[in-house]
């Protein structure tokens, strides 16, 4: 279901989906269209923390509720709700653990988790660059650099919460990596609209690449370790992600989600979630800079294009007001 079982909340979502503000309308649209959220999980969300949805409630109440719910059920528990039986219909049991997958991290985000290290952000950037250069040139990474970077990465891993990680199959993005603007292109391909230059300065990102076998080994005793992303797996900081769009079952029978590719020529790529994984130094594949901005208007247009592509398969599309 997609919250059709709760008329007050559905009415609220429908009203909000008509909002002229993208930050409000896009998440509401996603909640109405996401058919992959199991009924029990949907009910758990609605019952959580004394939430009483009303058609006329402020949007920020919903955002705060979702943040609390995600913190409690997605980030904190040793086994995130994403991989608990309540979400079993979204699991990807057929996925083989021999895939190489990739994921983008902002360097700021990693450094935010590695603050217990005394290494400065600039030094981390230098060390990661040196590591990748050494790997590419098949030279030795300075042992002192290695010990500092390993220590920093340990701290990053230690303070990471248990939220599931969004990843994409390496084979689908390999084609972008030869481009000089690979960082901008990957940001677009993964639909990471929040990764933008800061005050005109480029935003540094790193490309992490690893084999799913490691995730499988780390979580083989858990009920599941991969899943299709739903709106309830998002852990928002300031409102839900507007660059997410739920993938209909009909379009994606194997269960993958679809990224919103922000590039003009983009379609959509596959994405899915896996359980928490501690990074290793060898996972760092690339370091680069995102230099281009993404406007809300551009995201809105891309979302509209994405929705049009999937329109026939979105079973709850009728619950949204017709587009003018």
């Amino acid at each position: 279901m997609a919250f059709q079982n709760s008329p007050p909340f559905l009415q609220f979502l429908q009203r909000t989906a008509d909002s002229p503000t993208l930050g409000e309308s896009a998440p509401a649209e996603n909640f109405i269209l996401d058919e992959r959220v199991p009924s029990d999980r949907e009910q758990d969300f609605l019952d959580f923390g004394g939430f009483v949805p009303r058609p006329d409630m402020p949007v920020t109440d919903w955002f705060a509720h979702q943040k609390n719910h995600a913190k409690e059920h997605v980030c904190i528990p040793r086994v995130s709700q994403t991989f608990q039986p309540i979400n079993s219909t979204s699991w990807l049991p057929e996925l083989k653990p021999d895939w190489a997958v990739v994921r983008i991290e902002t360097l700021d985000g990693l450094c935010d988790r590695g603050r217990a290290s005394s290494t400065s952000d600039a030094e981390v950037q230098r060390l990661v660059t040196a590591l990748i250069n050494a790997k590419n040139s098949k030279t030795t990474f300075d042992p002192d650099d290695e010990v500092v970077l390993s220590d920093w990465l340990d701290k990053v891993n230690l303070s990471s919460d248990r939220r599931p990680a969004f990843v994409a199959p390496f084979v689908e993005v390999e084609k972008f990596l030869d481009r000089p603007d690979w960082a901008n292109r990957l940001r677009d391909a993964f639909g990471l609209g929040h990764v933008q230059p800061r005050s005109g300065r480029p935003r540094t990102i790193v490309l992490m690449q690893y084999n799913l076998e490691r995730v499988f080994q780390a979580h083989r005793r858990s009920p599941a370790w991969t899943a299709s992303p739903t709106v309830l797996d998002d852990v928002p900081t300031t409102g839900p992600n507007i660059c997410f769009f739920p993938a209909p079952r009909k379009s994606s029978p194997d269960g993958f989600g679809f990224t919103i590719d922000l590039a003009p020529e983009g379609g959509f790529g596959s994405e899915f979630l896996h359980a928490h994984l501690a990074y290793r130094l060898e996972d760092f594949q690339r370091i680069g800079e995102v230099t281009t901005e993404v406007t809300d208007a551009h995201i809105a247009a891309t979302r509209a294009r994405h929705r049009d592509l999937l329109a026939d398969d979105l079973i709850h599309l009728k619950d949204l007001s017709p587009r003018p």
Binding site: T60, G109, L192, H194, T237, P240
Partner: peptide
């Protein structure tokens, strides 16, 4: 989290 600022939604 009582704000709607999409550009920060996925940032830490």
């Amino acid at each position: 989290g009582r704000v709607a600022i999409p550009v920060w939604s996925r940032a830490s």
